[in-house]
Design a protein around this nucleic acid. Structure first.
Length: 663
DNA sequence: CGTTCTCGCGCG
DNA sequence: AAAGCGCGCGAGAACG
């Protein structure tokens, strides 16, 4: 029997800023209201419930029996684009305020998640354009919606007039827009395959995690914000004075650059490393002052405190910070306060004393010990996340998971043997590069170089990039040594190098012979419809849209058949044709397998009763009632199990428990 | 005035 | 013989 579908889309308005505060706080906000709901039951024409309608369930049941019928019929799948938003609004407003029947999570589906799994952009406007759907997003209506969805500026500033725009013509545009969205979404839904049953389990877990949320320490956030405000102001004054108002804040990159050059000092860019180098030179006093100010304040991590504050509900819970399958490899991305890039490198080790001082406002102590308030806040940003009352956090991470997966995927025996025997692979690489017995390698320079080789050289990294990567990690080495490291890696890891060529050829063949499956070790490729599929050991498929093979030059000028495909550039967000090569495909596959290992562990942990809070690529954060050492051991044990499809993959896990998150 | 692009920074 | 890759956010500047 064909799956029956109910597509829905809300337009809402609120005093809460959705972008700044996230769906969790938005939906829970008292001022948040539904302006309309468009819905489509199977293939029937899309209907709409309007602002002035009576939204109480008794009336809706009378006026929209098909809608309520579908909602109450367990055989209907309820679908939306970015379903997390619709779920939240449905539950917090329609169920709570108007008595609508609840819809359990397992009946929901999300067309944005489906687009993501197909390696297409999540944005409905973009994806419908790319696929050339009959229904396209109504961009004029979109503008009207944005106007109507927040309070009028007159009302906000002076409390004058109506709170929202509600002219009849505007409302009609809004309704038309909402209907078009549902039509567009329904067409997209039909065009794309549903998530596999297993991936649907992963998606549902993602939704549970996002709804459950994590607790933050509001007291810490408030005091941190006070410190940030004060120091920013001090620095702004200083900068204004020194530059005669040409620069009024350390954030004005272009203006500082220009001003510094006007003082006769050359400066390539405003990157921290460049500034640090520059400060080693002899500089005019004022220039030195400005650059030092910029260095102390130009820290992305302090903005986190504001994001935390915005996202947190009145009971200090932050929800909806994970984006399922945002990376084309299937990894999650972070959102809002971005829990995926909290500072971890180069921190002051113990955050508890810093947190105490921040809460007490002991700026003198922070200044004396940590060189300033903002400087110290970087080191305790993770500590904002804490366990709920009576609970503790369990945090586990996989050791060098991608390097281990690479060894397993490529059948790289020497590496596999080392990992199975617990040999330090970074030391192994160092021993080979520096021609020193492995026992003599200690922590420090040599092992650091070995680490960069083990982690980066597996995907074709060249000498120059290796040098740059090392430099960024604070390792200074000669071009000769870099050359040696890269060459030796390739010589000593033949299986990896062979895999680059093999996987590339297999993908190219699959594109050339549409419909046939081409195997390459644990991976197989198949070109079907508009997608090149890469079947992973877990059975999950990675998508590459609109693949082509054409002759193209390598960076060193050799013409070869080259695979390319369309993708959203992860930095610019532009839809571009991208050329691939063996190293890139290898990296994508390795990252995807590591993600599958993690997703499988998340499902097992969830089954075992651990409340999951976050996933950070190779790390899982869970929360439990305080149950002591036994809980931690069980957590580690469940997390470390190898899925059936990954037998022989040498994975290793470490876990700890605490009431506060840290590195 | 709002949106889009670029730079810089943070993580895995 | 040989190309590391994957993300998001804030701020300012540029564009409309």
């Amino acid at each position: 029997m064909r799956l029956r579908k109910l597509h829905i889309d809300f337009e809402t308005r609120s005093e809460v800023n959705l972008k700044a505060c996230g769906v969790g706080r938005y939906a829970a906000g008292e001022s948040t209201e539904v302006m309309c709901l468009a819905y489509k039951v199977d293939k029937l024409p899309t209907q709409i419930i309007k602002l002035d309608d009576d939204w109480n369930i008794s009336n809706i049941r009378r006026k929209h029996p098909r809608l309520i019928g579908a909602i109450e019929d367990g055989s209907f799948s309820v679908r939306a684009h970015n379903a997390f938003f619709e779920q939240s609004i449905y539950r917090d407003i329609l169920v709570k305020r108007f008595g609508w029947p609840e819809v359990p999570l397992k009946r929901w589906a999300c067309t944005a998640a489906k687009a993501a799994v197909h390696a297409l952009p999540r944005k409905l406007e973009t994806v419908s354009k790319i696929l050339g759907l009959n229904h396209q997003k109504d961009m004029v209506g979109h503008k009207v919606m944005q106007k109507m969805s927040k309070p009028r500026s007159q009302w906000l500033s002076k409390g004058k007039g109506d709170k929202y725009f509600t002219r009849p013509d505007q409302l009609e545009s809004l309704y038309a827009y909402c209907i078009t969205d549902v039509d567009c979404e329904a067409e997209l839904d039909d065009f794309l395959e549903d998530l596999s049953p297993h991936e649907n389990e992963v998606w549902m877990l993602d939704q549970r995690i996002n709804h459950y949320g994590f607790k933050v320490d509001r007291d810490l956030i408030r005091n941190a914000l006070k410190i940030i405000d004060r120091e920013r102001e001090q620095y702004s004054e200083l900068v204004s004075d020194v530059t005669n108002r040409e620069v009024t804040s350390v954030d004005q990159r272009e203006r500082i650059l220009q001003w510094v050059r006007d003082q006769g000092v050359s400066l390539d860019n405003m990157q921290a490393d460049t500034l640090r180098e520059k400060l080693k030179e002899k500089l005019p006093h004022d220039v030195r002052t400005i650059l030092e100010a910029r260095l102390s304040l130009g820290k992305a991590s302090v903005a986190k405190y504001l994001a935390f504050n915005n996202y947190a509900t009145p009971d200090d819970i932050i929800r909806g910070t994970l984006v399922y399958h945002q990376a084309t490899t299937g990894r999650w991305a972070g959102k809002g306060p971005q829990p995926h890039n909290l500072p971890s490198r180069g921190l002051f080790k113990k955050q508890d004393p810093i947190i105490k001082a921040v809460k007490e406002g002991d700026l003198e102590w922070l200044q004396a010990v940590y060189g300033g308030g903002i400087n110290s806040l970087v080191s305790c940003a993770r500590g904002v996340i804490q366990a709920r009352e009576g609970c503790e956090l369990l945090v586990g991470d996989w050791a060098a998971i991608e390097a281990r997966v690479l060894a397993w995927l490529t059948g790289n025996k020497p590496a596999l043997t080392d990992y199975h025997n617990g040999v330090d692979r970074y030391k192994r690489q160092a021993s080979l590069i520096f021609s020193v017995p492995i026992e003599e390698i200690e922590k420090g320079f040599k092992r650091d170089v070995g680490k960069q080789a083990e982690l980066g050289c597996g995907y074709g990294m060249g000498v120059e990039k290796f040098l740059a990567t090392c430099l960024k990690a604070g390792i200074n080495l000669s071009p000769e040594l870099a050359t040696k490291a890269v060459k030796l890696y390739r010589k000593n890891n033949k299986a990896v190098v062979d895999f680059w060529g093999d996987i590339n050829m297999a993908a190219i063949r699959a594109v050339q012979r549409k419909g046939t499956t081409v195997k390459c070790g644990l991976i197989s490729w198949k070109f079907e419809g508009r997608f090149l599929w890469c079947v992973l050991p877990s059975g999950r498929k990675l998508a590459y849209y609109d693949p082509r093979v054409s002759m193209a030059a390598t960076p060193w000028g050799e013409m070869r058949p080259t695979l390319s495909y369309m993708t959203e550039d992860s930095k610019t967000h532009k839809w571009v044709r991208r050329r691939s090569y063996g190293g890139l495909l290898t990296e994508n596959i390795v990252q995807a397998i590591a993600r599958d290992i993690m997703a499988a562990a998340m499902l097992r942990l969830d089954d075992a009763g651990f409340k999951l809070l976050l996933t950070v690529h190779d790390e899982i954060v869970a929360e439990v009632r305080r149950i002591g050492l036994l809980g931690l051991q069980k957590f580690e044990h469940v997390m470390a199990a190898t899925p059936k499809w990954a037998v022989g993959c040498p994975i290793a896990v470490e876990a700890w428990a605490d009431v506060r998150y840290h590195k």
